[in-house]
Design a protein around this nucleic acid. Structure first.
Length: 468
RNA sequence: GGCGCGAUAGCAAAGCGGUUAUGCACUGGAUUGCAAAUCCACGUAGGCCGGUUCGACUCCGGCUCGCGCCUCCA
């Protein structure tokens, strides 16, 4: 039962064999920080977070690098529009991104290199490419990669170099020898931020920073490189050309790409303007519900973002948390029943199959049923099943809150939600009414609370409530 | 136009050549003052047309439709 990963390079699931036994070196393309992160970014963030969590749970020693691209055209344009320095802009959005990922329970990568902190490595890689005959400096101070010199160009995106020639963008301002060539170094226009280089003042092109930073952090060859659905071409294709041109070695063994988030069957994207920022969505749904929504489909599939999907995620998560309610999840003395191992194995098997989180969740729901039965029967292994459920949830980054806390907070996002003290007071009133068998009053209170989004649950031990 | 991906029950979403996915919703039962939650029972779904096979949702071919990349985008 070994781990299999779908490799974009071969378009097949392959058995995962790390370069070094038990170690995983992984690089994921992070944000270009000129705006707030949207749900598409959240999907990449959460998907690779789950992947790292699972790998670590399996005993792998993972080095996870996720870069920040903090210098590029869009950043400069935006800073210009805002009349602020580009560093002020990028710092603001880096902070915002960190807030977003923390709220989504995304664990920090081990390294988070920034392009502007790696200009030296970028320049030296460009120089290496020139020395190796893969790049050329143009008259105007730009440096270009000569696509024609890299015979396997197109291997990742399965593009034919000849056909790319026909569709390549032709920009009159640049000095390319071939329209497919792309900029490694862009000469500075007057007044623009720039760094000194052998080719004059300038700044790195898009693509080269990832080659430089990944190689710098992880070595010439590493195990996994990931990113969003729009990155295989041209970004990752260009990274391969750059890194392999510079080092002469294979760049990456396994390429992984997340699927797109869609809105009304269309890809959510900046250019279409149909995106929801993470913070937009977090104003309307608890962070864990958003995370559950992301994890409930396979990372490679396209998913539609909709109100219904989020509501469904909320219901599903409620079922999970309800099963954990009133169970002592700190009791460690209980012996785990034999059947627990079966769930653990099924979960592991699902995740080993290219990180199949929907199946992993199905296993968790089966475990919930088992747990609920055990609770009803008063079995002596209730706690150990609940602990197992949370243990599995931790790999997906869910179920780590106190069940009571989650269930009492999950709907309360409108500022005018009824307070806990008011709820408790009404419940006391209702208990009195019920004691007097005043069912009309009892039901009136319950209906009132229901309108306030509070659902009551009368149990032998007393009345409990949740927001739904 | 080129390259690639997908089409599963009311909705969402998986595995699998023959035996229950799972969640939400629905129906019946248990439970409850009535509910809620929970448990039990219940769903012959797999775009269309052919082929392979004893047997296909699952493999092969064709078709239709949808989506992604080919330009900045996660």
């Amino acid at each position: 039962m070994s781990l299999q990963i779908f490799n974009t390079l071969t378009r097949t699931k392959e058995v995962f064999t790390p370069l070094e036994d038990n170690k995983v070196k992984m690089y994921v393309c992070g944000m270009t920080v000129y705006d707030y992160c949207h749900l598409g970014h959240a999907r990449v963030l959460v998907s690779f977070d789950v992947i790292v969590r699972f790998l670590r749970s399996q005993g792998y020693d993972v080095t996870y690098v996720r870069n920040i691209t903090d210098i590029d055209d869009k950043i400069l344009n935006r800073a210009n529009e805002n009349g602020e320095s580009f560093t002020a802009l990028t710092e603001r959005f880096i902070d915002a991104m960190h807030e977003d990922e923390e709220r989504l329970s995304v664990k920090k990568p081990d390294l988070e290199p920034k392009a502007t902190a790696h200009i030296v490595e970028i320049i030296s890689m460009i120089q290496q490419l020139i020395d190796n005959g893969f790049a050329y400096a143009a008259e105007n101070g730009d440096v270009y990669y000569s696509v024609d010199k890299f015979p396997t160009y197109g291997q990742l995106s399965k593009k034919n170099p000849e056909e790319l020639l026909a569709g390549a963008r032709i920009d009159v301002a640049d000095a390319k020898k071939d329209p497919r060539d792309f900029a490694l170094w862009k000469s500075a226009k007057s007044g623009e931020v720039s760094w000194d280089s052998p080719w004059g003042e300038g700044r790195p092109g898009w693509h080269i920073e990832c080659s430089a930073m990944s190689t710098c952090c992880l070595g010439d060859t590493f195990d996994i490189h990931g990113g969003g659905p729009d990155l295989p071409f041209p970004h990752h294709e260009n990274e391969i050309a750059q890194s392999e041109g510079a080092t002469g070695k294979k760049y990456v063994n396994y390429w992984m790409h997340a699927g797109a988030i869609r809105v009304n069957k269309e890809k959510m994207s900046k250019s279409l303007g149909n995106f929801f920022t993470i913070r937009d969505v977090l104003e309307r749904y608890p962070a864990e519900v958003v995370r559950y929504f992301l994890v409930s489909s396979h990372y490679r599939s396209q998913v539609d973002y909709s109100e219904e999907s989020l509501k469904e995620a909320q219901s599903a998560l409620s079922r999970l948390y309800t099963s954990l309610r009133d169970v002592d999840v700190a009791a460690t003395s209980e012996a785990e029943p034999a059947l627990a191992e079966e769930y653990r194995n099924r979960f592991q098997k699902a995740m080993n199959d290219d990180f199949n989180t929907p199946v992993a969740l199905a296993v968790m729901f089966d475990l919930v049923k088992e747990l609920n039965r055990a609770k009803a029967n008063g079995d002596d292994y209730v706690s150990s099943l609940a602990i197992l459920l949370r243990e599995l949830g931790e790999v997906l980054g869910v179920l780590q809150l106190d069940a009571e806390e989650f269930l009492k907070s999950s709907g309360g996002f409108s500022g005018d939600a009824i307070s806990e003290s008011d709820i408790d007071a009404l419940i006391v009133d209702r208990i009195n009414a019920r004691a007097a068998k005043d069912w009309a009053e009892s039901d009136r209170i319950r209906d009132y609370l229901k309108d306030e989004g509070v659902i009551l649950d009368d149990r032998k031990e007393g009345t409990v409530w949740r927001r739904g």
